[in-house]
């Protein structure tokens, strides 16, 4: 088989894996948009905040230690213990649920029935607040995140493809884990939305707030639940991306990778986020591989948006989004 074809196959496989990582971020957006019509600008920062909290808890760091030390003249930084990964994930989830409750109580409860742009602006404010709050709480240094996920070349695939083609494909173990986690996450979310009482209530709220209220669905509860779910998805995305690059401010920018995925997959479809992620991942990687080298490279960021725009032209609601027809 020609080298270029083999390289191309390797690029496609890696594109699919990268797409799954993008989809993980996009899922959080979809959940909140589906249930409340809010485009949550803060989703990327939530991933950062969740990952920072996870590392802080695992390492036994004292939250707000710089502030405490500056005010009281103390020198406290660590509690002196370490928390195992699973327990730290559970504790972080409690923090994310608390955050969801606070966000709902202080912000969104007061903005029911406001125009979407007002809700969007509120999430921008929330994003900037969380950025600063996270820094004050855990510090802005780059933190190593190790919850025991494997990383690096998968030797089984390398050996297998080498045996078949004479060229070993590179697939990152972390990407494989991310794929499995994303599949489980999407499956669970779909089952939850379709078959659980809360899931059906969530869909009812998404269809019509007032109708849902009239049949006894608690809007407050559903919104806290949805923000908590989005917090959980943010935590998963934060773990995957944070393991790759360390936990640092730039994690919040992964939201930029989710936007074309949402444009393509639709803002209201959980499977759409996955399919959109895969198309964007493969599309941008293949373009960089085949055309990028001829035009100076670094095409991925903009090409993802070009791809999404092409889909938008033909299907404005995205591949899996609900077509909105408003009669006047």
């Amino acid at each position: 088989m020609p080298d270029q074809l083999l390289f191309g196959m390797e690029v496609v496989l890696n594109g699919l894996m990268a797409g799954v990582l993008y989809a993980l971020v996009a899922l959080g957006f979809v959940l909140i948009y589906k249930a409340s019509g809010i485009f949550n600008y803060a989703q990327g920062v939530m991933a950062l905040f969740a990952a920072m909290t996870l590392v802080g808890i695992m390492e036994g760091n004292v939250p707000f230690s710089h502030l405490i030390n500056a005010v009281f003249g103390t020198q406290v930084h660590h509690f002196g213990w370490q928390v195992p990964g699973i327990a730290a994930v559970a504790l972080t989830m409690i923090v994310m649920v608390a955050l969801a409750w606070v966000v709902n109580q202080l912000i969104f409860r007061h903005l029911v029935n406001q125009a979407p742009i007002i809700l969007f602006m509120a999430t921008i404010g929330l994003a900037y607040f969380l950025e600063g709050f996270g820094d004050v709480m855990w510090g802005s240094d780059i933190k190593k995140l190790d919850v025991g996920l494997p990383q690096g070349l998968n030797t089984v695939i390398d050996d297998l493809t080498y045996g078949l083609f004479g060229y070993g494909f590179f697939i990152d173990n972390l990407d494989i884990v991310a794929t499995v986690v994303a599949a489980l996450l999407v499956g669970s979310l779909v089952v939850f939305a379709q078959y659980s009482k809360q899931g059906r209530a969530m869909r009812a709220v998404a269809d019509d707030h007032q109708a849902a209220l009239s049949v006894g669905v608690s809007l407050n509860f559903i919104w806290v639940m949805v923000w908590s779910l989005a917090g959980f998805v943010a935590l998963v995305a934060g773990i995957m991306w944070g393991t790759k690059s360390g936990v640092q401010f730039s994690l919040s920018l992964i939201a930029l990778k989710a936007l074309p995925v949402l444009m393509l997959g639709g803002f209201t479809s959980i499977p759409g986020a996955i399919v959109g992620g895969l198309i964007i991942g493969v599309g941008e990687k293949l373009f960089e591989f085949s055309v990028g080298t001829m035009v100076g490279g670094a095409t991925e960021n903009w090409f993802a948006y070009v791809l999404a725009l092409i889909f938008l032209v033909f299907r404005p609601q995205g591949l899996f989004g609900e077509k909105i027809i408003e009669r006047v």
Binding site: D3, V11, K244, S250, G296
Partner: peptide, 21 residues
Amino acid sequence: MLLPVDHPGQEQKSQWLQIRQ
């Protein structure tokens, strides 16, 4: 061999696959 990485540089799979190839 020139391999540009766009800001912020969180995703570099393409560049490093090219290096591997």
